[in-house]
Computed example of a mutant assay.
Amino acid sequence: MFDLFDDIPKPDIVWLPDWLDPPTASDTLAALIDEITWQQDSMTTPAGKIPFPRLTAWQGDPDAVYVYSGIRNVPKPWTPTVLLLKTKAEDAAQTSFNSVLINRYRTGMDSMGWHADKERELGPQPVIASVSLGTTRTFDFRHTKTRQTHTLQLTHGSLLIMQGRTQLEWAHRVPKEPEARGERINLTFRYVDSSAPLKRP
């Protein structure tokens, strides 16, 4: 029988809302807050430079240099808790990662705007494993052609794997949510090809 919903586009994702049990997720969150060296980057806008609405960190293998939003990220060494999460995420995604972008959303006013992770050094169809810890936040997908949207609630201890043509065909964001209480840390594990030409900031 024909399904009216067959033609509605969906991102190529794997969604594991209970990837970590609550006690493990809470212990992991506390460890990350303590062991990671956080930084406050800035971005250039028509009004001048403004700070990112979140704190960030970049860890990985020594050659996993990554440029996004005009920032050249040279990886800091893997910290113990991040390395444990990397190994577990590799098992779930059935692929290898050599780097991770870590975002710390301090309140519901911290956010990330619409974008796609499609830099050349990530390859044509990157696999990105996104681990969420802390306060539940909305995660929106938007199809680049149809403008169709797909929304998830990224819960404490969840894993979202984005793969296939997701980065080519969909943008994503974490919108501001003033009503959200508490912190959220998100780790997006990826593989950076050090032989690919880097974009210049």
Rank of each mutant, 00 (worst) to 15 (best):
V127I: 15
K86N: 11
G70T: 00
T81E: 15
L168K: 13
K88E: 04
W114F: 12
Q167C: 09
A171M: 14
N73A: 11
L101V: 06
D117F: 05
G60Y: 00
I71G: 02
P175V: 01
M162C: 01
H150R: 14
P175Q: 04
P124W: 07
L159N: 02
S69A: 07
L122A: 10
L85R: 05
A64D: 03
R165L: 05
V65F: 03
K145S: 14
G123C: 03
M112I: 11
I161T: 06
I71E: 12
F97Q: 02
Q94Y: 00
T79F: 03
T87H: 10
R142E: 15
L133N: 05
P124N: 08
H172Y: 07
R165F: 01
T81Y: 00
A116L: 04
T155H: 12
H143S: 13
K145Q: 15
S132L: 10
Q125F: 04
F139V: 04
R106A: 13
R120S: 00
T144M: 15
T87R: 12
R137C: 04
I102E: 02
K176S: 12
A116N: 11
V82L: 07
I128C: 11
L122K: 06
H115Q: 07
A116P: 12
Y105K: 11
G113C: 13
Q163M: 13
P124H: 02
W114V: 10
Y68V: 03
N103T: 10
R147H: 15
H172V: 12
L83I: 00
P124T: 09
P80I: 05
L83M: 10
P178S: 12
V67R: 02
Q94E: 13
G108Q: 07
V174E: 03
K88Q: 15
H172A: 15
T155P: 07
N98L: 14
A129Y: 01
R137V: 10
I128N: 05
V127R: 03
G60Q: 09
T146C: 15
K145A: 14
T155A: 15
R137P: 08
H115S: 13
I102T: 11
R173N: 06
G134N: 06
Q125I: 00
N73Y: 14
R106W: 05
H172F: 13
T146H: 13
D110R: 03
V100Y: 08
D110G: 07
K145C: 08
Y66L: 09
T79D: 08
T81D: 09
M109T: 06
H150F: 15
E177H: 00
A93K: 04
E119P: 02
A89C: 13
E121W: 05
H143V: 13
S158A: 10
I128G: 08
N98R: 02
S158W: 02
G134Q: 03
V174C: 08
V100Q: 00
L83S: 09
S130G: 07
V174P: 06
I128W: 14
E169A: 10
T151K: 15
D117N: 08
P75S: 10
L152T: 01
G70A: 09
K118H: 11
L84Q: 15
G157M: 07
G60E: 04
F97L: 05
E169T: 12
P178R: 11
V82E: 01
Y66S: 03
K145I: 11
G60P: 02
Q148S: 13
L160R: 01
K86T: 01
P75C: 09
Q167L: 09
